[in-house]
Amino acid sequence: MIPFAYQRAGSVAEAIAVAARPQSKYLGGGTNLVDLMRETIEAPAHLVDVTGLSTAIEDTDNGGLMVGAGVRNTALAEHPAVRSRFPLLSRAILAGASGQIRNMATVGGNLLQRTRCAYFYDDAARCNKRAPGAGCDAVGGFNRIHAILGASPACVATHPSDMCVALAALDVTVHLDGPDGGRTVPFGDFHLLPGDSPDVETVLRPGELITAVEIAAQPLAARSTYRKVRDRASYAFALVSVAAAIEVDGGTVRDVRIALGGVAHKPWRAHAAEAALIGQPARSDSFRHAAEAELAAAAPLSGNGFKVELAARAITAVLDDLVEERA
């Protein structure tokens, strides 16, 4: 780890002012950033600790939740309003990382963990994230865990977050503050697909800080869940994960939300599957058809073709569980 200066910010304004220095980074729980600094993938000259800022979870006027960026993952999963109104979010967080890491990691930091794969960590490998333009050794390498949707020849890594998959299925707004003032970004627009510049992973501008994540009221979400398929029972990244919520009226799908993890460079909202389901009978064959509509765009690599069928089955199973009230 190269030397750096550390400062704990006492306010958002102070954090933004301090982070205006070149090569500054905000520090949350450190569960990703400290590791990347130790690997010299990240090498900030200044760390601005923002974990003491915006640590509240508050009801909004319209029945939603305002979640401070400094809220720890455990605290969000545990909050009574999240457990009762957005169970898919509690379930997703509890499916991620380990108990120790969830106690450290913040909500803002979860959004900003790097989209990454083993080649990203391997400094003997080519990686366009580490060295833009260098090439990608994953495309022709061991790519069993890599992306099947929205990837590019420049990068096939997947976004590692479980929490973000649940957020992608909900109506969520990311609140930012920065040198040029505050703004909000819809969650679905916050993370970027790799395109030609996979080193750029979000729409954050230099010096901008996530201050909160706002979750809009969504009665549909009371009937929701999260399923994660992985190589071992716990403490592993998703091969495929599904966050879903559904509203059924008289056997017909009135509204549905589906997002996928483990399949793309960003949390993947399954818009095509949702569109294919609205107004259809709430049955397995409709769910399977909708899943196939989403996965028609899948472009698997040499080692991850199994993910296409796995995702189709996972989507179908999760929706089956929800309408049969097993989840």
Partner: peptide
């Protein structure tokens, strides 16, 4: 793993100054 104010965390990923 150690306990900080009773909560378990990973001391390898925590900077002491935090």
């Amino acid at each position: 793993t150690v306990l900080v104010d009773g909560e378990r965390i990973l001391s390898c990923l925590g900077l002491a100054v935090q």
